[in-house]
Structures are given as C-alpha cells and as structure tokens.
Design a protein around this nucleic acid. Sequence first.
RNA 1: UCCUCCUUAGCUCAGUUGGUUAGAGCAUCUGACUGUUAAUCAGAGGGUCGCAAGUUCAAGUCUUGCAGGGGGAGCCA
Length: 465
Amino acid sequence: MEHKRRSKIIDVLKSKSFGSEILIKGWVRTKRGNKNINFIALNDGSVIHNLQVVVEVARFDENLLKQVTTGSCISVKGTLVESMGQGQHVEVQAKEIEVYGTADPETYPLQKKGHSLEFLREIAHLRPRTNTFGAVLRIRHAMAYGIHKYFNDHGFCYIHTPIITGSDAEGAGEMFRVTTLDGDNPPRLPDGHLDYTQDFFGKETNLTVSGQLEAELGAMALSLVYTFGPTFRAENSNTPRHLAEFWMIEPEMAFYDINDNMDLAEDFLKFLMQYALDHCMDDLEFLNKMYDNELIDRLKSVINSRFERLTYTRAVEILMASGQSWEFPVSWGADLQAEHERYLVEKHFGKPVILTDYPRDIKAFYMKQNEDGKTVRGMDVLFPKIGEIIGGSQREENLDALMRRIQELHIPEKDVWWYLDTRKFGTAPHAGFGLGFERLILFVTGMANIRDVIPFPRAPKNAEF
RNA sequence: UCCUCCUUAGCUCAGUUGGUUAGAGCAUCUGACUGUUAAUCAGAGGGUCGCAAGUUCAAGUCUUGCAGGGGGAGCCA
C-alpha cells in the first residue's frame, strides 16, 4: 500500500520541485471561487502563510467540496505547480481531497475576517488557529528555545525548582494554597486554626511565587544555574501586564557582582531580540503590519543601544529636575511610579534603562546591602512600553548582615534555615535576576495585553479552558 | 482593590430631547460569475438590546444594584 508522508506547508512554499506529487494536511482558512474552480487557503501552523490549493470543481464530488468550509480540516494529495495567479509563487493542483473534520459554518466562531482580541480571549481554545495567535505562539516557542540555547551555550545548568513550596518567606506576593484537606469540614486545632499536620505534606504548602531561593542553592554548587518554570501569584491584579500564572526565567550566578549581573541581563535580552529577528521574521512582519508599525524597528534599536545604567538616587535627581508635573510626587525613599519609569525610558533616555542601588526599605531582604547603610544592590531593567521586564540583585552573602535583615523584617528563621545554611557553609558572592517570560513576549510581539501572549491565561475570575 | 468607559444580530458597531414595526457592514444561506487573493455582484434568513429591580402613559435610551469586559492606577515579573 502506498503511504506518502505529509509535507509541511512551510517547506512546500519554499519548494521548487514543480510537477512532483505531494500530500498536505491542514485547516481551511477560506475557500472562494466559482462553479468551475475553487481556491482553498490551507494552513497547518508550520508558518503564517497559507498554501493555495486549486480545485477543479468538475473532478470532485459536490458533497465533498461542500464540506470544505472555513475551519474544516482536510488532507490533500496533488501536484505542486507554479502559481498562475498573483500573490503566491506555488500552489497545489488537487487530485484527492479527504475531509478529516467538518466545521459547521453557522456555528464555527472564527471567520475569515478579523476578530477583536477581546473576542478571541473568549474562545481561547480556537484562537491558535488565527494568524495572530499562530504568530505569537511560534515566537513564544522560539523565545523559550532561545533562552535554553543562550544559557546552555554560556555554561549554565537548568535547575528544576519546586512548584509546591513549604516556604512562605519569598515575600513576592500572595500565594495560592495547596491542600488536600476537606474544604467543607477541615480538621481544626483547639484554637480554631486549621490543623495542617493532617494535610498531605504535614504542613502548610503553597504554589511557588519564585524559584530564586532554591536557584541560589544550586548556584552555590554549580556556579551558573537558571530556572525556567511556572510561577503563581494570588494578587488581585487586573492589568494588561499581570497574570496569576506566568512563566519566569531566573538565572543565578556565583562569583557575579551587580555589574556582572547587568552585563548578563543586557547581553541576554539582546540575544533574544536578535534570535527573534533571525528566526521569526515572517511572524514579526505580520505583527508589525497588523498591530505595531514600530515593532521591528524597536527590536533593532534595543539591540543597537547601550542600556543606560544609573542609580536610583541619580534617577530621582533627574525626575525632580525634569520640570514635569507628576500625579505622584518624586522623593528619595519612595518607590518609583509607572509614570516616573516611563519618563526615564521613553522621554529622558529613549532607550532601555537599568536602575540600581535602591533604598533598602523598598526592596527584598536578600539583596546585598551597600556600605552607606541605606541602599541595596538591586537592579531593575526598564523597557519602553512595558516597564519593568527584569528585577534582580546581587545577593547578601554575609550571614550576619542577612540575619539582621531577617530579624528586622520578622521573617521566621525556621522557614529559611536551609537558605541561611548557604551563608554558613562556603558562602560566595553571587547575583541573579528574574525575567518575566510573558513580558518578554509582549515586547517581542508588540502585543498590548499579556493575556494574548500565553495560550490559556490565568487571571482573577478567569480560569476557563 | 481603586478610578473610568463599555455590554444592541455569529462578529464589529450605529441607534437623536424617552415615542409606534431596532439599523448598517462583515459573516451565514441561496443564486450569478472560467484563476480567486479579506474575491466580486444580487437576494434571503438572523435580535429576550448583559441580568435584576425601579421611574414613566411609554425604556435599547433615565435611575439603582449585580455580573462580565476594556483602559488607567496599585502590587510586581
């Protein structure tokens, strides 16, 4: 029995083997034509472009062709030919068509005409079949691969940190509880509190808000490590830049100080932008045309710019001298507001900015304390359009200094004894940062809402699909 | 969570100072057309105006509450 292998449309479109027999499979985007000839635009997700299938109506059963509608899935055997029409170089002259799955045109939600992104969010199970989400998902894949490639090529070891954590000391926000206790009738202690000793892990557990503390443990053995996994925040954040479930990349490097950390962050981001330009140009051109006319120029400009590095203190001086009127006043010691960051990145410098040496009271306990007693060696990378894309720091490796901070902030020592042990046994200067994967994808795709760069977004009041 | 705007046909929207039978484009269906490119042309079908209550002779339109969504802010990645 003859068995022919399916060709991917991305390869067919590049092929010049005119006259050869090929087999293609995919989903119908549109069908048009007249009673003599039909044109089917077929897409299999391998590339944003469709392959045109030419159907001589007389050669096929009428009922078969009736089933070929927008959204249906078909298999086509035919001859690869040079296109007689405009708009494409190659097309397939159909000889056999098999319908795998019909799609009732009366009820299939996707039309050949464009849909709003808001509507597509309501049909997230079908939106990968659109040009936009095909492009976003291919870019998202390329960025995930590029991240692993970058770290692998630079001698980093990929560490899998736990999704379920028994520590609530990470201090990165509200957590989702993980439990097998009976929600209707949970065991309670005499004082009324839940009795977690009867829970699955014998203690209170949550979904992770960061893999950083565990990544630091890895860096204290393997020197260069990174995590890349899901992260969960139970914050009631309703913005185009926040998700309850998102993916984060967290490299952690022994023997790096904050300047090494900044060098890595800048080089890493530029590598990823270049990787997108090198491997996703078809998709970027589509997004550039449909959503953001400056997208490709912006990616190139980031690659070619030197990120501006300055201290928080210097940034405050610039903001106070700017003559701008702020909704929130600028003062040393207060966290910078979105409007302040945007001014620095988009107006004052016109390129990515890395702010360092923040007041210690507005930053996490693990950041390396400076000699001035007021600031810590934190760093935030601020990007145009999306704001903070990376947050990181040199870590406090001195046990006494770290202990003082933990006591000041009333962090229970019993929860972080294992973290403190790294400072007790062979401590080393080290640094790291966290990159929000979806924020990276936002920047690289030019999409405006973070719910449109993850297949199935999780956000307050939204866990469908 | 706060501020603000929105919710009318499958989709995107219009709907006047409250007034009789709620409109358009696209999509869908039927027909026409010998190579189309978001094909084109002609015709047809398609609505509990987000949900609930209230004001009024009369509510898509005004008021209140609730739900969902967009934008901005906070929290952050």
